[in-house]
Design a binder for these strands. Structure first.
Lengths: 333, 333
DNA sequence: TTGTACGCGTTATCAT
DNA sequence: ATGATAACGCGTACAA
């Protein structure tokens, strides 16, 4: 920077001002500085800049399963807007217990980020406290953190509409495929969808049979496992609500391998759900990442930011993986 | 850090040494410092540390399509090992022309990373020069960069085995679904697989018909589009080799919608390929990310690192999406 | 083994 | 509008 200043015949202070586009720089000197910088192909050292300014220009993103479709979409959405404002994104993948403990033990985010984005996590009180102790704004997607901004869908209503759909098709024996994580805790999303399942069935006068609720690890394998177990029941379900499309894919796989027929409805509208003809509840995932990042930007720029809450809509997408109960099940008619 | 030093009754230099685990610190002082740091819940400022040491502890990762399955796997694999060594990973998603130009225009990696990982990119000479001008070690996955390390599969041989499989099934009219990017350039991977297609057909005495080669944007939509076009040909193929499983998924979708029957073989062994019964060429993607990150670590730690080259194996995975030509095609028999 | 002191490359405050 | 200079928080020769 000194070289640039010398070449432009000004002080380093003026170079700094110019390069950051601050006011109070005459057009003429601005040109000189810009030319000098260009001819020396000089760029500001982000690290030195961060140390001096005290701002990291970085946001930390915490997800449980980075390589799953849903989280990939969220991260990609957030990345696109953060990058556009030259903010760095530091990804922390803490799905399994060991990495999670390491994370909250060392809390590597300290002195490192200006804001935090967390996606579909279930934090203990201690973990929440640790997060808040970072002293930076937080935005959560798909779950709540006290004092944090929030982007989400109405999980209970959306999951309810899925179960409602199965009821409307005449199904009464309806299974559910749910997930848990390493701590044997339900993720908040799983919790809400499970609640919707219970509520809708109950209010329709259908008894909730715990045997029909399978709790498995997230992913296709989990879904396959769950459906296999459901099929071995003495009185298996005629329809199943899977908490996510990836679980539903696994369920479809089990059905195909066993040659059985059970209606399946998923949740998300995964990129491949149309191909697999999966009835599902659509949510705009990428966009939630975009909106969350926008919220983060606002939080970082205004010192008096108050947590916002954004509720995204969902849509029931009807395809061929669900059908009336009577068609395949012996009924009274 | 001064506070810690004061509390422990030592100098900041000793604190620094202790916290970095350097030798030449007596066990007793080490304990005192560690306790002091713990009781003040002090952590080193990574930014200040980086400025002082001149090392960023960060690697830049350049991918064309961050949210596609393949790249998600690579990045997840690399992240897992980088994180384990507390290295940050800065992701740059430059698939479309505008972001790519912005990237090479500003070259935001300057003074920012200790190493670079690029995945399946096709760089122009100018872009390669720009990258090399960063003066940091580079590792490329799925393509070559002069002077860079490399992790890859034998694309020509692997793609060849796919085409060979179709030939062995008796197919003679074999299509190919290939990709191009925004600059209308073939990605190096696309190039190699296309070459294999031509070579294998030629050496089997089968004429290469350019009408059977569809070039589309990457992704399911592209695959669907390509297959639709192939089906409208006066003499459509009886089998198709898709450059990636995602393209193949699109092709399967088109077949299902049109009720036509064409053998399809993909490439990658995507998580969902088994479910869709897609015959494909398997490669271990996540592991390539892991290995590339390991190579990067070696490159960063030893000043005299010489580019390594790693060749990963592939396997032909036979499923139900390919079948003998005679079964569905009127033949002499 | 430990302490001193300078340097890392900016930003920001206060003058001018 | 511009310049001098003190932070920013640490690493690291060098000295002790």
């Amino acid at each position: 920077m000194e070289d640039v200043a010398r070449l432009a015949g000004v002080s380093t202070a003026t170079v700094s001002r110019t390069l950051r586009g601050l006011p109070n720089v005459s057009d003429e000197t601005r040109d000189r500085v810009l030319h000098a910088a260009a001819s020396l192909s000089y760029v500001v050292s982000p690290i030195a800049s961060r140390l001096a300014s005290g701002r990291t220009h970085t946001v930390g993103v915490i997800v449980p399963y980075a390589s799953r479709w849903f989280f990939g979409q969220i991260v990609a959405g957030a990345e696109s807007v953060l990058r556009a404002h030259s903010l760095d994104l530091l990804l922390y993948n803490i799905g399994d217990l060991p990495s999670r403990q390491r994370f909250f033990d060392a809390l590597p985010l300290r002195r490192r980020v200006d804001a935090v984005l967390t996606v579909a996590m279930q934090f203990t009180d201690a973990e929440t406290t640790a997060l808040l102790s970072l002293g930076v704004p937080i935005v959560a997607v798909g779950h709540d953190v006290p004092g944090a901004g929030c982007v989400r869908i109405d999980d209970v209503a959306a999951a309810g509409s899925a179960v409602q759909h199965l009821l409307a098709l005449g199904h009464r024996r309806i299974g559910m495929i749910s997930t848990y994580n390493d701590q044997s805790m339900f993720l908040p999303v799983a919790h809400a969808r499970h609640r919707a399942y219970v509520e809708i069935l109950s209010s329709a006068g259908v008894a909730v049979d715990d045997d029909l609720i399978m709790s498995v690890p997230h992913g296709m394998d989990g879904g396959e496992q769950a459906m296999r177990r459901l099929l071995t029941l003495p009185d298996p379900p005629t329809a199943v609500f899977a908490e996510s499309d990836e679980l539903a894919f696994g369920a479809l796989s089990a059905l195909r391998r066993t040659g059985r027929h059970v209606s399946v409805i998923g949740f998300d509208d995964h990129e491949l759900s149309a191909l697999l003809d999966l009835t599902t509840v659509r949510q705009r995932v990428f966009e939630q990442g975009v909106l969350a990042a926008g919220m983060l930007r606002r939080a970082m720029s205004s010192s008096a930011w108050t947590p916002e809450e954004l509720l995204m809509p969902t849509t029931l997408v009807l395809r061929a993986s669900t059908w009336p109960a009577a068609v395949r099940t012996p009924g009274p008619g």
